[in-house]
Each structure stands twice: as structure tokens, then as C-alpha cells.
Simulated assay, not measured.
Amino acid sequence: MTVYSTFGIAEESPARTVYFAGSGNAALDQHLIQLLRGELEPATSVTEVSDDQLSTLDNGPIITVGPSAFSRVRQANRSAPILAMLVDRPFISGFAGRSPGQITAVLYDVPLIRQALTGKAILPQATKIALLATADSVELYEPLIDELPAYGMSARIFLVESNDNLISTLVRALGYGDFLLAAPDSAIYNPRTIKHILLTAYRRNQIVIGPTQAYVKAGSLASSYGPFPEMVEMAGDFLATFFETGQFPPPAYPQEFRVDVNAQVARSLNIPLPSREDIATRVDRQLTIKGEASDE
């Protein structure tokens, strides 16, 4: 005679569906789906949806990958709960602020203070940071400028008024700072300009930190970044909260960051380069010490 555990049956998770609106990059989308399926409970399915299905989704939350996917979903279905991935804070903050609990994100950009400390971990003597900005992006740097003195650093913004004076402004910035800190500002740092920015810095024996892991491969010396498994783990926590309460937590950064470096650039500039793990540990220690001090 077989005895079934009524407790075990009662404890089974209810069947749930999470919809997935991808970036269009098949390899990236499938990698994220695989990570999500490994993170979520077995009873929670991850279902890819096409654009023509978006307007009909009225129950399950939708994960979007990248700004374009988020915009498509938001335009097609204003009532859908959305968890955005691979978007930065400047892009998503307005949407999340207007629809708290309905729209959230696991933020893809890296806090600029963390990027600044990544540069200082490589150049401990650094005290001055150069920043390039347009009139529209100056505000990106204001919180950073307020935070830096606590870490023995300061920054100056060099305003790029047009594409024509990008390089001349860059040259002035490189003459001021111990390194150039790049933010996710697509008006300045984009595929059309990055080669010229990096070559100009290299020829003047100056380094660029950030803005993303992809730019390290192009010739930036280093960048912190949020690893995909950590971002997916946070997405799983956000979804669990949503299923429990019907509301998403506010957008947030992952708890763990790693560092990518370009060792060839370091050798060419004769810069001693700590290990990636050592850089990340130094940055975490600085942020922890400052956080503990501010709590006292």
C-alpha cells in the first residue's frame, strides 16, 4: 500500500509563468533563459513571447532584455508588470518612479563611485579624475562629485559642446586628470567615437576606466561589471517578491561586482596591474569602510 504525504503535496509550489521578451541577440537571450530556469523554482516556467503577443499578456510578469525590448513591451502593454534587465539607472528610473511596484530593474550599469575606486585601486596615487559630459549628461556625474572627497579624490567635468570638439576637449581632460572615468553616456562613448578616445588617451600615456566590460576589450584599462549569474539571482529574488506580494521591489544593483582588465594596455603603459580579484577586493573594502563610517 502506497502512502502519499499530504504535507508534501500541500508544500508544492503553484504553477507560474514568467514571460521573456528578448534582446534579439539569440545567444545572449538563450544564456539568460538558461540561467533563469536554473534560478527559479521548477513550477515556474520561462516562456519567450513575440511582439504580437505582448498586448494579450495580462497576468504574468515580463522580463525584458535591454532598452529596446523594454520600450517595445511598455508601448504594447501599459499594464504589464515588467522586470527589466540590461538597462541602466538613467534609462529606467523615470519609468520605475512613475509606476512603483509595476516596473523595476536589475541595473546593468555600475555605480560611478565603484568605477572611480576601480581606477584608484590600479593607480593608488590618483587624486584627480577627469570626466567628459554633454549638457544633457552633466547630471550623471553630480552624485559622484559629491562622494569623491570622502575617498581622497576630486573630479572635474569637461563639457563636450559638439562632436567637432570632442577630441580637443578630451585632450584638455587628459591633461588634468590622473585618469579618465567614462560613464554609460552614449552621446560621448559609442562605437563611432570610442576608438578615437582610446587612441588619444593611449598616445598621452593616460588610462580610461569604464564604462563597461565591452570597452575593456576595445582598449579601456579596466571596468567593474555585474556578472550575469548575480544579476539573474537578483531577478529571481525580485520575481519571488512579486509572486508573494503582487509588487516588485525598486530597481537595484546586484550585490556582487567583478573587474575586467586589459593587461596588454597595462603593459604598454608600464602600469603594474593587480589581479582582477585584488582590485575588486580593494574596491569592496573601501566602500565597506566608508559605509560603516557613515552609519556611525
Rank of each mutant, 00 (worst) to 15 (best):
M1K: 10
Y4N: 08
F7P: 00
F7A: 14
E12H: 07
P14R: 13
A21I: 00
A21Y: 12
G24M: 03
N25G: 05
Q30Y: 02
Q34H: 11
L35C: 13
R37E: 13
E41R: 14
T47Q: 12
V49M: 07
D51P: 04
L54H: 08
L57Q: 02
P61H: 05
T64N: 06
V65I: 15
R78L: 14
L86C: 10
R98H: 05
Q102G: 07
I103P: 01
T104D: 01
L107E: 06
K128T: 07
S137K: 02
E147R: 12
A150N: 10
L159F: 02
L159N: 09
D164C: 00
D164V: 13
L170A: 09
L170H: 04
R172E: 15
L174M: 10
D178W: 04
L181S: 06
A182L: 02
I197G: 08
R203S: 09
Q206F: 00
P211F: 00
Y215F: 10
G226S: 15
P227L: 12
F228P: 13
E230T: 15
G236C: 12
F238H: 09
T241G: 11
P254A: 09
P254I: 06
R267I: 06
S268E: 13
S268P: 02
P272N: 12
L273N: 12
R276C: 14
V283M: 04
D284Y: 01
A293H: 02
D295T: 12
